[in-house]
Design a binder for these strands. Structure first.
Lengths: 157, 157
DNA sequence: ATATCTGCAAAGACTTTGCATGAGA
DNA sequence: TCTCATGCAAAGTCTTTGCAGATAT
């Protein structure tokens, strides 16, 4: 759906304010970019995208903002094995579906999947509860990734 | 048990040969260090440890060997959020218990846990099978980590 | 008005690469 | 012997930091 830009009040502004952070043009632009894609963008990817509209915004700000966003829980930071960190919005306006990743160790392609998520959620819930109690550890997040070879890379060798 | 050093033929040598790699002193030393600990060592940790016995072995070799080991599936490489990569032997002589990690985002401490592993294994097995079929993706490994705050870090704030 | 935020340039940290020497099979 | 492996130093890459000027509230 193309015409998503013209919304009323961006849903994330309150979140910033709640944390005592100011709402600025760069921050708006960065969250904007993240909310418009389902890809796993690197800091530089985001920089380039933001740069198209606001050429004056620097890469440093991207990094600093992403750090904030991660800390606020608005964004997840991933490491898929290629050197750079990847970022993904934690929640969308419409509550984007929770998913995990399938990472190809041949070409670093990442596939999102939502299959078995319900079963996973249940097991994870159990596990989290158990671990929290046993280790007195307050779990706030989890990471599940599968590694292997995608179709193309299987055929290469 | 202290006296584990004097074993007959190191179990991993065959693996090296099988991949067409040579067995060398540095490689032996590095696997040796990894097999003597249950910690999550960084390349530098390993370097320092190896250095005590073989001061002539350089950090470069550590990196190069770790890459080989990871590629051979003998070692897992982890990213726990502090900048450096961490390495852990994938399998021990006695088939060390499969485990996952609980990572404290406050102090980067990592706790290994084996609770619920059986349930996880079962679910993961199912999931792997399903995903392999659906995406024609050959899964070779998986990663599960929980993030949160350890006891100490909960009390700090 | 003023505490934050930002951009630029420079620094930092981990990891990789080039090349000549040395060692395994 | 003849590749493969290693060490050293230098280079690379992503990310962070310092600081003066700009901005949000």
């Amino acid at each position: 759906m193309p015409g998503r830009k013209a919304k009323g009040a961006p849903w994330w502004q309150g979140r910033f304010r709640g944390y005592g952070y100011r709402m600025t043009v760069p921050r708006e632009a960065i969250v904007g970019v993240l909310s418009e894609t389902s890809k796993h963008l690197s800091a530089e990817d985001i920089f380039l995208e933001v740069h198209k509209v606001y050429p004056s915004i620097g890469l440093t700000t991207i990094y600093r903002t992403l750090e904030l966003l991660v800390q606020m829980g608005l964004v997840f930071k991933f490491d898929f094995g290629d050197k750079r960190a990847r970022y993904e919005l934690a929640e969308g306006p419409k509550g984007k579906r929770h998913h995990h990743h399938l990472v190809c160790i041949g070409c670093d392609t990442v596939i999102d999947y939502t299959d078995f998520i319900d079963e996973e959620i249940e097991l994870l819930g159990q596990t989290e509860k158990g671990l929290s109690k046993k280790f007195n550890f307050k779990i706030t997040n989890h990471l599940i990734q599968f590694y292997g070879l995608c179709k193309r890379c299987q055929n290469k060798k």
